[in-house]
């Protein structure tokens, strides 16, 4: 399972290993809902091929940050760049122009997201879910998309479940279909929003194992999680968020074992 690459074809980014080229760059991102300020100036950067884990208490704005990266929300202030491209805007004549919905849709193709509640299309089978974006967004011929989708399902260990509807799959299996679906578009960045939080404890490991494989293959991943062990073993960098800011960041060995910030310490005491 681990020795063949998980993506259907080699991505444009370096196949494995890490470069210093920043893939995701976030600076000064702010976001409010009404008068509640959820993000208060987020700065973070993830190099190509690296895995970043975002930890933090509930309500600290982790989901909102991911949703700003793929434009499910629009940041009020600050800049997000993916592989150098400014997210959500077109710069023209010295001004930023918000993208229209077509342009935003086109830009979203560089990311893929795995959701806490899987969000598979319930009226389509597993393999149809994986084929959906390649066929209907990227214009890949059906037959080719199907072959690639079957390969991806095989590699997340669901080769025998491809014609099942989501309602016929366990939570862990649904989440693995969702991961295959995210990989099918060969994204430059994979976003995970608490991918194991909705799973029964005995199903968490099968999903984390698939994610660890992806990390080894050099995909750039941004993972919001409460799985401290996963962050310790897989992440290159850990960001700790609280109250809408990144209060501490660094390699997991340091942030998770010798946290400097009192709030990181309090959080880790509670979850460990």
């Amino acid at each position: 399972m681990a020795d063949t690459p998980l993506t259907a074809a080699a991505p444009a980014a370096p196949a494995a290993g890490t470069t210093d080229r920043p893939m995701v760059e976030i600076s000064g991102v702010c976001k409010s809902f009404g008068d509640q300020q959820v993000l208060r100036g987020i700065d973070l950067s993830v190099a190509a091929g690296q895995v970043a884990c975002i930890l933090g208490p509930s309500g600290s704005g982790k989901s909102t940050l991911l949703r700003c990266i793929n434009q499910l929300e629009r940041a009020d202030d600050g800049a997000i760049r993916i592989d150098g491209d400014l997210v959500g805007y077109r710069v023209h004549g010295g001004r930023r122009h918000p993208l229209n919905s077509r342009q935003a849709a086109r830009q979203r193709r560089s990311t893929a997201m795995v959701f806490q509640r899987f969000n598979l299309l319930t009226h389509r089978t597993a393999v149809e879910n994986v084929m959906e974006a390649p066929v209907h967004v990227h214009g890949v011929p059906r037959q080719q998309a199907r072959t690639e989708a079957l390969e991806l399902l095989e590699r997340v260990g669901l080769g025998d479940r491809c014609d099942h509807y989501p309602a016929q799959l366990s939570g862990g299996q649904q989440q693995r279909v969702a991961i295959a679906r995210a990989l099918a578009v060969r994204p430059r960045v994979l976003l995970f929003d608490e991918p194991t939080s909705a799973l029964d404890p005995e199903l968490v490991d099968e999903v984390l194992a698939v994610m660890a494989d992806l990390a080894r293959e050099g995909l750039t991943m941004l993972v919001v999680t409460h799985e401290i062990a996963f962050a310790r073993d897989v992440a290159d960098t850990v960001f700790f968020m609280d109250g809408g800011v990144v209060v501490e960041s660094g390699p997991p060995a340091r942030v998770l074992t010798q946290p400097e910030h009192p709030r990181t310490r309090a959080f880790l005491r509670r979850v460990l």
Partner: peptide
């Protein structure tokens, strides 16, 4: 949202 995140137009 999942379909939007895939890059589908509205």
């Amino acid at each position: 949202e999942a379909a939007t995140a895939m890059g589908m137009t509205p």
